[in-house]
Amino acid sequence: MPAADQNATPPGFGITLDTDGTEPRVVVTGELDLLTSPQLQEALAGLIADKRAQRVVADLTGVTFFDSSALNVVLRAQRQAGEQDVELAVVPSPAVSRVIELTGVAEHLSVSEDPQA
């Protein structure tokens, strides 16, 4: 039996970079978990390190599941953004908001309810 492809993207998961506007945006749909979180980490790290904008938006309004590995990625990106003098705005879905609320990390994140923010 062949080993599972570690780079396989689960059905329903998508990540899109929108760098056309004044604020680069990472738009994620589907489940953010141990398998998919590295893709978010790579996208956010690249936009933050690029330093072309003072603000980067993580649009997570289409995320249906959000686990601790995804939360860790967002918190690390927040720290990286702070070190680079870039604001990271997180726009959560209800699933993401619940994890942020339950873990008490909201004070460490710039959370916005407006997907266009």
Rank of each mutant, 00 (worst) to 15 (best):
T61H: 03
A70W: 05
D67L: 05
V73D: 00
R76H: 02
R98I: 10
E83F: 09
E87T: 15
E101K: 15
G82K: 03
A89K: 14
L109H: 11
E101I: 08
D85I: 08
G62P: 11
E107A: 14
D67I: 04
S110L: 13
R79T: 13
S68E: 00
L40G: 09
D50K: 03
G46W: 11
E87C: 12
A81E: 10
Q41E: 14
T61N: 05
P92N: 11
V56P: 09
R55K: 08
S110C: 12
L71N: 08
G104H: 06
V73E: 06
D50C: 09
A106C: 14
V91G: 11
R79G: 05
R76Y: 07
V56N: 10
L109M: 12
L47H: 13
K51L: 11
Q84P: 07
S69N: 09
V90N: 15
K51E: 08
R79V: 14
N72W: 03
G104Y: 08
T103I: 02
F65N: 10
V86M: 02
V111L: 15
V86Y: 14
E42K: 02
V86H: 13
A53D: 13
V99L: 02
D59E: 01
N72E: 04
A89S: 15
L40T: 03
V111P: 15
A89D: 14
L60A: 07
V91T: 12
H108C: 06
P94D: 11
A49H: 00
A106F: 13
A95R: 02
Q54F: 10
F66K: 00
S93I: 11
Q84V: 11
F65M: 04
L102Q: 11
T103Q: 01
V56H: 09
L71E: 00
S93T: 01
R52W: 04
V57P: 07
G104M: 09
L102E: 08
V96Q: 04
F66G: 10
S93L: 04
S68A: 12
K51F: 00
V57N: 13
V96Y: 09
Q39C: 01
A70P: 08
A106P: 15
Q84M: 14
T64I: 14
I48Y: 06
P94F: 06
T64Y: 06
T64H: 06
H108K: 07
L60W: 05
G82F: 04
S110A: 13
L60S: 09
F65K: 02
A70N: 03
F66Q: 06
F65T: 00
T61M: 02
G46H: 01
S37L: 04
I48S: 02
E107I: 08
A43M: 12
T103S: 02
V74G: 04
R76G: 11
A45T: 14
V57C: 06
D50A: 00
R55L: 00
L102M: 12
V99T: 11
A70K: 03
F66P: 11
V99Y: 02
A95F: 00
E87P: 12
R79Y: 09
V86I: 12
D85A: 13
A89E: 12
G82T: 04
A49P: 05
S110G: 13
P94L: 05
P38A: 03
R76W: 01
S68W: 00
G104K: 03
S37K: 02
I48C: 05
A77K: 13
V91E: 11
